[in-house]
């Protein structure tokens, strides 16, 4: 495995600052390439510490209606894996510090070609991957080659991942652990803060990696609550819904689209930054 990535550096720096990371998810190419690039370029200044970019897929079986709809908006505009990598390259031309994680499903990567994808993603400035339908049982497919190429492979842990299984999930996980706070698909139920805090503590008994928590975080208050118990707060469906809610009747983006998404990110960042954590934790 190669050296530290932007993800490792970012979490270390935030730990020293005594606060949690705001991890933002938006879908590549949603609602169109130009607006999507504008949103992603604006995320660091709005307060995003780590950027997750969804790679659209027709059949996102672990995602709810909001993220599936955003994928279909992007695909409807002709978005594909090449364009997702182009988006990262354009972002990287102006920002060499903010970590970028690509998140998606395996089939588009498999069809692009695993080795070619890893080399193109790395060259574009991607730091890590989250591939929802690749559990540890399928590590030989993409996880091990990704780690070997110097990318982080971030794994999801869930309430069904018990103490017996956690070590298996954490082996070959790097960058951070993404704890799925509720059973279900993205963007539906909201997490219970005390349960989340306990779960994060449970995961931390098995790993030194930062633990980010997501699924169902919609407001600055919720973000602050999670930030008190975790190393990172992931927000996705709420941002994707902000894209949807700021399109005109024909589904076309205007200047208000990226402005609305970035305004929500600023609010969420305010929530996350309002909580001070012990650097020694």
């Amino acid at each position: 495995m190669s050296g530290a990535t932007r993800i490792d550096h970012r979490f270390a720096a935030l730990r020293a600052d005594g606060r949690a990371a705001l991890v933002t998810f938006v879908t590549a190419g949603d609602p169109d390439y130009a607006t999507s690039l504008e949103i992603i370029k604006g995320l660091p200044a709005a307060g995003a510490d780590v950027i997750e970019i969804g790679m659209p897929f027709t059949d996102p079986m672990a995602d709810g209606p909001a993220i599936q709809a955003s994928s279909l908006r992007a695909l409807g505009k002709g978005h594909d894996t090449n364009k997702t990598l182009q988006l990262v390259r354009e972002f990287r031309a102006e920002d060499n510090d903010t970590p970028i994680v690509l998140m998606g499903y395996y089939n588009p990567i498999y069809i692009y070609g695993v080795e070619r994808f890893l080399s193109d993603a790395k060259a574009a400035g991607v730091d890590g991957l989250i591939v929802v339908d690749l559990p540890p049982e399928e590590d030989d497919e993409l996880c091990v080659p990704a780690l070997n190429s110097g990318l982080n492979f971030i794994r999801l842990a869930t309430p069904t991942t018990d103490d017996h299984r956690l070590p298996r999930v954490l082996t070959n996980t790097s960058g951070f652990v993404y704890y799925v706070s509720v059973l279900g698909i993205t963007g539906t139920k909201s997490p219970d803060i005390s349960t989340v805090t306990e779960a994060v503590a449970r995961i931390k008994r098995h790993t030194d990696l930062p633990v980010a928590v997501g699924f169902g975080v919609k407001t600055a208050d919720q973000a602050a609550g999670i930030a008190s118990g975790a190393d990172g707060v992931v927000v996705g469906s709420a941002l994707v819904n902000a894209v949807r809610d700021n399109l005109d009747d024909a589904g076309v983006a205007g200047p208000a689209t990226s402005a609305a998404v970035l305004a929500l990110v600023r609010q969420l960042a305010g929530g996350v930054k309002s909580v001070t954590r012990s650097a020694a934790e």
Binding site: M61, A62, Y106, V132, D133, L134, P135, P136, E137, E138, R155, L156, A157, T158, P159, T160, T161, D162, R165, V169, V180, L183
Partner: peptide, 20 residues
């Protein structure tokens, strides 16, 4: 033992479902 038939089959599911 991995649920494979040649290259086909396998267990390509989200972690939530894996224990089930």
């Amino acid at each position: 033992e991995h649920g494979r038939y040649g290259i086909h089959g396998g267990r390509f599911v989200a972690e939530t479902l894996m224990p089930l």
